[in-house]
Nucleic acid binder design. Structure first.
Length: 325
RNA sequence: CGCGGGGUAGAGCAGUUGGCAGCUCGCCAGGCCCAUAACCUGGAGGUCGUCGGUUCGAGUCCGACCCCCGCAA
């Protein structure tokens, strides 16, 4: 028996249930699995569902990572863990009790956790949320700061209560925005940031070194879940706003418009806009060898786009093949 | 069997009722200009996704397959 093994046993690891579903939750699960003083006793994630062309049954990202990590743990003579994919978490109260968790960590699980479950672990349920609460409660917390042109955002680790993202705060980490990042970049950045502060925060909290701070409900804002149709560009808006929307919705739900009867995804637009604009909103035109689209205020230079059925192409490639005046 | 679009020169596209494979850009060589995302001249570069069928003749019509993508999730 090695020294590290002895340390693990002597520390009497904290029993953790992890609940999460999409990519955003991956770094958190990884961090927990890598930390000897926390023992994963179960993972909950959403059921497999049909996805992609052909509607093939696809497991959520957390299931795939969980299986990999759990198998590896078993091979290393450490405890592996079961994976649960209940349709409704509220029916799993007894299952969860039987796992005797000290703590439940929830990252983008995708279902509301009822109070009956919140109360099971002695340390409660801890959630990682990708905004500086109480700002941007809700699902679109990653899109909102880009869409609104904020200069900062961050992650919050909180103790969950019955409300949606209303629980008392354990710790926050702030990051600066440079006005050019896409949703994808912000997503990856904050997923990593959340995982980075998760372990030290859990250690401090379970050791009694953190007093959860109640949120200021008066300062709270809420962002509803995005729909695919939110990505449809309204060209009567100012170019500056549209450029932010393109970054905030890339890659999902994607900013798109219709041209010549086809759906065109706008993937990247230039951050600077053209001042002159005499054309009707939504008109595609050439300007100094570049592709531009007129907006309600100013015009937007398009850098990268994708027509339905085609691969993504640069504006120059688009101009070569399609006839734009 | 979820719905749909597409594979033609390095890139993006066109190709009419089957009849010599084109356009824009790029590339190579040369020219012009104070200068250019400018212009002029010449040039290279394609087994038209694959296999089979119909035909005097197939990028084009028929069949099968492979690959890419949008919707949807």
């Amino acid at each position: 028996m090695s020294i590290t093994d002895k340390q693990e046993h002597s520390k009497n690891p904290i029993r953790v249930i992890f609940m999460g579903t999409p990519d955003f939750a991956l770094p958190g699960l990884h961090a927990l699995a890598d930390t000897p003083d926390f023992e994963i006793v179960g993972v909950f994630t959403q059921p497999d569902k049909p996805a992609g062309r052909g509607q093939i049954m696809t497991p959520p990202p957390i299931k795939m990572l969980s299986e990999k990590l759990s198998t590896k743990a078993g091979e290393n003579n450490k405890n592996s863990w079961p994976i649960y994919q209940p349709v409704k978490i509220k029916t799993e109260t007894e299952t969860i009790k039987a796992l005797v968790p000290d703590l439940i960590v929830v990252i983008a699980y995708g279902q509301i956790i009822p109070p009956a479950i919140l109360d099971i672990p002695r340390f409660g349920c801890i959630n990682v949320h990708a905004s500086l609460l109480p700002k941007y409660r809700g699902a679109a917390c990653l899109n909102a700061p880009i869409l609104n042109g904020d200069t900062t955002t961050g992650v919050t680790i909180m103790k969950m209560d019955a409300g949606l993202d209303t629980g008392p705060i354990l710790r926050q980490a702030k990051i600066n925005l440079n006005g050019r990042e896409t949703l994808e970049e912000l997503h990856d950045h904050l997923a990593a940031k959340g995982a980075e502060i998760l372990i030290p925060t859990l250690r401090d909290f379970t050791a009694g070194r953190i007093k959860p701070q109640r949120q200021d409900n008066k300062a709270a804002t809420y962002v509803r879940t995005l729909k695919k149709s939110d990505g449809r560009i309204d060209w009567t808006k100012p170019a500056k706003e549209i450029e932010r929307l393109i970054r905030a919705y890339n890659p999902w739900p994607g900013a798109y418009t219709e041209w010549d009867g086809k759906i065109i995804k706008i993937i990247t637009a230039a951050p600077e806009t053209l001042l002159k604009n005499s054309r009707p909103a939504g008109t595609f035109f050439r300007h100094q060898g570049k592709l531009a689209i007129s907006c309600g205020q100013d015009s937007l230079v398009i850098l990268k786009l994708q027509a339905a059925g085609k691969k993504a192409m640069t504006a120059a490639e688009f101009l070569n093949g399609y006839k734009i005046k």
